[in-house]
């Protein structure tokens, strides 16, 4: 049975049939057979977590599992985040990583996003210690983790805000806007921090010419991802079927 066998992987809501050798790692099937190169490889011992994907809703290291073992499984990779029901075009975690500068070289980012997603699915209002533990299987060499923690807090707050705005259940913290820990902390203690602009909490909101405004990014995302529906209600059905909804 060293011959290739046919397996079915449902990745980001789309069912794929691929022929794999038994020894083929899931991460290679995802990256090379399905050309979803957002999932990365950073080590050979299962320590770095760059290859983290959600399998049936749980974060796993796709370099420590054979593709054949995922036959029939539902897989979520970073490429599927924009289509999740809670994404509203771009997922709050993705937005959080950008707003809180939760990435530098970007290599660990997809894995971090997956671990963050799994955490918020389980615990919508995690404290810092919980967040740190949830990403402790993902190594980052650039950020020192602090802004990744902030990014996940940002997403938690954003999701709570959206839930509150939708008239849904308000979370324990009242779905309040950015908590002190979750909000952008000014980089300086000296009192000049509030003079920086480009942030809502800095100097009175983004300027008119703010090129980083979310709507613009959404438009771009739509254009760059032809079949990705931006209307969250359209994608909700697919995502629910995937079993990884909140």
């Amino acid at each position: 049975m060293t011959d290739e066998r046919e397996i079915t992987l449902t990745v980001n809501g789309t069912e794929h049939t691929v022929e794999v050798e038994p020894r083929r790692l899931l991460v290679h099937a995802i990256r090379e057979d399905l050309d979803l190169t957002g999932t990365h490889i950073g080590c050979d011992t299962g320590n770095c977590g760059a290859c983290t994907v959600l399998k049936d809703g749980e974060p796993i290291k796709s370099c420590l599992m054979f593709a054949a073992q995922a036959d029939g499984a539902e897989i979520l990779t970073v490429e599927g985040m924009e289509d999740l029901p809670e994404a509203d075009g771009i997922h709050p975690l993705q937005e959080g990583f950008r707003e809180e500068h939760g990435l530098q070289c970007g290599y660990c980012t997809p894995g971090m996003l997956m671990s963050g997603k799994a955490l918020l699915d389980e615990d919508p209002d995690p404290d810092e210690e919980t967040i740190r533990d949830a990403i402790s299987g993902n190594l980052c060499r650039c950020t020192g983790y602090q802004n990744i923690v902030r990014s996940i807090e940002y997403a938690a707050d954003e999701l709570a805000d959206r839930a509150a705005a939708d008239g849904g259940a308000v979370t324990a913290d009242g779905g309040a806007s950015a908590s002190p820990e979750g909000g952008h902390e000014p980089p300086a203690v000296g009192g000049d921090a509030d003079t920086f602009c480009g942030r809502e909490d800095c100097c009175g909101g983004p300027s008119e010419a703010d090129p980083f405004d979310r709507e613009a990014l959404l438009d771009d995302a739509e254009g760059g991802n032809g079949d990705a529906a931006v209307d969250s209600t359209d994608t909700a059905v697919d995502a629910d079927d995937r079993g990884d909804s909140v």
Binding site: G46, K61, L64, M65, S115, A118, G137
Partner: peptide
């Protein structure tokens, strides 16, 4: 249990 390896590894 929570001292074993890391979250992803504990899932598998």
């Amino acid at each position: 249990a929570p001292l074993v390896a890391d979250p992803q590894i504990r899932n598998r």
